[in-house]
Nucleic acid binder design. Structure first.
Length: 565
RNA sequence: CGGGGCAUAGCGCAGACUGGUAGCGCGUUUGGUUCGGGACCAAAAGGUCGAGGGUUCAAAUCCCUCUGCCCCGACCA
């Protein structure tokens, strides 16, 4: 491809709309352009790179035995009501009405559609297991789209769904997908980390997220420095710590704390450490108030609370509910004398000298012995993990990192197959419900994650597997006939061997071409100049590596092929 | 949805406080000189100053309303 024949609108200056490196570079390199919030056009080179990611995903899905389908992005409302997710995902779904006044949604995902399809099409154990996948545009009315393709309202996703006959069978499919994901991200040149994840609104049990480690990542994760344990913060557990408090020598004693409501405030006022305080949070579970206790220096992990109280709808109590439940305004709740179910973080078990709210305005209680003064409903790991916590699996220490979630594999179970009656007859002629797994990869997000993880001050550094062009040939002086001829013949040779090549045929100064080539990040750069040609040679340089090599024109193609391996 | 910020040429920005001819850099076009790390000179094109309303002899500038975008938070396969 000739540079002048395609469209590569590079920008010299940083666009104002972009915040993180990958987003800036995608705009500067002329890969994408913004249409509206969370909506992007792929320009020619951006699309080429995207197609390369898709190709890798397809190849590995096929290799893993998954079969490709394509389902509608536009879906009838009814199918979502059947699973109950029309309500559940109402805040994410784009809704549309057609001329018949029929309600439709733009699909945020496709569990309902595939399960409905499979329920109609498959009815024998002989047809199972099967894993279907597609690469489709998904639509989600994100509360806050950001960082370009990282979180967009319209984005490309590969989603796969396995239909299995037993937990063991599911495990096999799950592992096949897991391994395919490892290969996919490796081929994309990404360093990823698989972490244990919360299955969230999807339902289901086991789940892993594939995280690209990056400071700009939206998800917090922890990993152990001694063993393989790694988890999303939503999920991450920690080793319980032994209590260190001495036996108290007094009864709980009210102390005036006028106007001091926050932990920091109270701690400063009483000259105590935040760890000496107990944070008492009032939630409602199915509308009924409950108290949740965590150490003063920690935050509650609502996901953990939700897992402790399965099936219950949880919400933070509002001011009125708190006053009603504790008899005190917000900021002075405490467990002593509180007649609510009380759940507490494990690290509070055995604490015998702490400060809590007194359930009275402007008052706290000192010298509280939790073992003596409070009756607990249950202790559980309820706090959000953080840097330095103990690993739940070994004696190691957890460290906090940021990650971009590029893939997610789930064991779904029978949630959807039951709704849609996806059943089959087993060898005994007995009807069974299929067990499902689902497996997603954010394709557009993966593309941007590659750039986030592989760039320098000059621009993108593409892995050869997804670079829009693997080789850039730069004739420095296009009016020098021999330069152009050499460049063109090299392009022809390389293209014939299946490589993607771009030839910078623009009448620009050398520095200008170098800057663009670096910004675009082509893995291999071949410079053809009058100077090198005088010695019968061309110059080859790898992006991201300083070294340049001179090779004879005759050997150039062969050398390039070697370097791209 | 709460908080903050921004909106002036294709892109990045100044001008606004103190109302009076709309500017700079990059990019684009033309001509010339240049030619191994985003060249130089000269000329030129390009703007209903986000939209609507108000104040005023006069509004990019002051006032009101709306819209869009960005950031933080809440939220979130």
């Amino acid at each position: 491809m000739r540079w002048s024949k395609t469209h590569i609108p590079t920008l010299k200056e940083d666009p104002q709309e972009a915040e993180i490196p990958s987003h800036r570079l995608m705009l500067r390199a002329g890969l994408i352009r913004r249409l509206g919030g969370g909506l992007y056009t792929f320009l020619p080179l951006g699309l080429k790179a995207l197609r390369n990611v898709e190709r890798i995903v397809r190849e590995e899905m096929d290799r893993a035995g998954a079969i490709e389908v394509l389902m509608p992005a536009l879906q009838p409302r009814e199918i979502w009501e059947q699973s109950g997710r029309y309500e559940l995902l109402s805040n994410v779904m784009f809704r549309i009405r057609d001329r018949q006044d029929r309600d439709l949604v733009l699909g945020p995902t496709h569990e309902e559609i595939i399960t409905d399809l499979v329920a109609r099409e498959i009815n024998s154990y002989r047809q199972l297991p099967k894993t279907f996948y597609q690469i489709q545009t998904k639509f989600r009315d994100e509360i806050r789209p950001r960082f370009g393709l990282m979180r967009a309202k319209e984005f490309s996703m590969k989603d796969a769904y396995s239909f299995n006959t037993s937990p063991e069978d599911l495990e096999t499919s799950y592992q096949a997908m897991y391994q395919a994901y490892v290969r996919i991200f490796e081929r994309c040149g990404l360093r990823t980390k698989a972490v244990e994840a919360d299955s969230g609104a999807m339902g289901g049990s086991s789940s892993h997220e594939f995280m690209v480690l990056a400071d700009a990542g939206e998800d917090g994760i922890v990993e152990c420095d001694a063993c393989a344990y790694a988890a999303n913060l939503e999920r991450a557990e920690r080793r319980a710590v032994a209590p260190a408090d001495e036996t108290p020598d007094r009864q709980p004693e009210p102390i005036a704390t006028p106007g001091h409501k926050t932990i920091e405030d109270v701690a400063r006022f009483l000259k105590a450490k935040p760890t000496d305080l107990i944070k008492t949070l009032i939630y409602t579970a199915n509308g009924q108030p409950i108290a949740v206790l965590v150490p003063g220096d920690r935050d509650l992990n609502e996901h953990k609370l939700a897992r402790l109280l399965p099936g219950q709808t949880l919400a933070m109590a509002d001011d009125a509910q708190i006053e009603k439940a504790t008899g005190a305004p917000v900021g002075f709740a405490g467990p002593v004398g509180l007649s609510l179910p009380i759940y507490a973080d494990v690290s509070l078990q055995g604490r015998r000298r702490v400060i809590t709210g007194a359930n009275r305005a402007d008052t706290h209680l000192q010298g509280v012995d939790l073992t003596r003064d409070v009756t607990f409903t249950a202790f559980a790991d309820l706090a959000i993990c953080r840097e330095g916590d103990g690993c739940p699996r070994c004696a190691g220490t957890l460290h906090e990192k940021r990650g971009i979630e590029v893939g997610h594999v789930f064991k779904l179970g029978t949630k959807y197959s039951e709704c849609f009656k996806a059943t089959y007859l087993d060898p005994n002629g007995k009807e069974q419900v299929m067990i499902m797994g689902c497996y997603g990869i954010g394709v557009t997000r993966t593309l941007q994650a590659v750039i986030e993880q592989s760039h320098d001050a000059q621009g993108i550094i593409w892995p050869a597997s997804i670079a829009p062009y693997q080789i850039a040939i730069l004739p420095l002086n296009v009016s020098h006939a021999e330069s152009l001829k050499t460049a063109e013949s090299l392009m022809t040779t390389l293209e014939a061997q299946g490589f993607s090549v771009i030839l910078d045929d623009r009448d620009e100064r050398p520095g200008f071409k170098f800057k663009d080539a670096d910004l675009l990040g082509f893995p291999l750069r071949v410079v053809v100049s009058e100077r090198s040609l005088a010695a019968g040679q061309v110059e080859i340089k790898r992006r991201g590596v300083d070294e340049k090599v001179m090779v004879s024109c005759a050997e150039a193609a062969q050398k390039i092929v070697e370097l791209l391996k």
